[in-house]
């Protein structure tokens, strides 16, 4: 036992030192993102980062990861950014020691979006061109409409004017701080995908919602964002309108003003009556 502890004492530092150098196979290093790191990609990455990574890696650029050996590091740091996209992809997918493996949890596209998010902090970074090879990227087009009979959002996907079937379409409603997913549906032979919409969702005064739709076939992605009249109009009330106990003096509740003044004037009325009576005391006989 004692020997084992001693051994550990000697071996552990070596082990830790070895950990500093995280080798990634060359083939993996050269892997590139087939997706363009556009704004949407970066935003998706940010949400994922806040859900899965921030607890260990801290706020990006603040350099405040949790204390851990080896340190998780800040994704905006030189150590992170100097690596090729493929290395980062490999590390997130496979993990090591304290760094969990995210391949089972995240889609490849999601991991790429995380990398897109990290690269967003690096001004010098230029995304390398992905070689699509023989694959023909189809030009997808989408038309959004609303079917009031069934309360459904209808997305029609076409390519060169032809309806496309079997295409994965994701739809979501854009909110102030995130999105509300409507669903992920494949198109039918007419190129149509249907999404349930709850008419009680809060929209604006006219019942408009901003819908984000995304169709994907292979590496070919088409996104659309549209403001549509989908739900019941929301009646906005001014929160400080009306009379309240907590409001300004001139907005005091009527009942309070009435009760207060009634009580005070009754009592002071009696007081004044008595005082006047006292001044007339002389004449009483």
């Amino acid at each position: 036992m004692k020997n084992f502890v001693l051994l550990l004492l000697f071996v552990l530092p070596l082990f830790v030192a070895a950990q500093d150098n995280w080798q990634v196979p060359t083939a993996e290093q050269e892997k590139l993102s087939p997706y363009v790191f556009d704004n949407d990609m970066v935003k998706d990455g940010e949400v994922l980062y806040e859900n899965f990574c921030i607890s260990c890696h801290g706020t990006v650029t603040k350099n405040n990861p949790i204390v851990f050996v080896p340190s998780p590091g800040d994704p905006a740091s030189e150590k992170f950014q100097s690596q090729p996209d493929g290395s980062i992809f490999y590390k997130i997918s496979n993990g090591r020691g304290g760094m969990p493996s995210f391949a089972p949890t995240l889609e490849e596209e999601e991991i790429w979006s995380l990398i897109g998010y990290f690269r967003n902090f690096n001004r010098e970074y230029v995304q390398p061109e992905f070689d699509y090879g023989d694959e023909v990227l189809s030009e997808l087009a989408m038309v959004l409409s609303y079917d009031p009979n069934v309360d459904k959002l209808v997305v029609k996907v076409t390519s060169n004017g032809e309806p496309k079937s079997g295409i994965q379409v994701g739809a979501a409603v854009k909110g102030l701080f995130g999105k509300f997913i409507l669903g992920n549906v494949g198109t039918n032979e007419k190129g149509l995908a249907w999404f349930d919409v709850d008419r009680n969702m809060p929209g604006d005064e006219e019942g408009n919602l901003t819908v984000q739709v995304r169709a994907q076939e292979g590496y070919s992605i088409k996104k659309a964002e549209e403001k549509m009249q989908l739900v019941n109009p929301t009646e906005r009330t001014n929160l400080i309108a009306g009379r309240h106990l907590w409001s300004k003096a001139i907005k005091a509740p009527i009942w309070l003003i009435v009760v207060f003044n009634l009580v005070i004037s009754c009592i002071w009325g009696i007081i004044i009556y008595i005082i006047i009576g006292l001044f007339r005391l002389k004449k009483v006989s």
Partner: peptide, 23 residues
């Protein structure tokens, strides 16, 4: 002062009580 505030009620009622006690 705001009539909604207990401080205003307090001031009013202290004055009233003082007057009544004096009488």
């Amino acid at each position: 002062g705001r009539i909604q505030s207990p401080i205003i009620w307090d001031i009013s009622v202290v004055m009233t009580y003082l007057m009544l006690s004096l009488l």
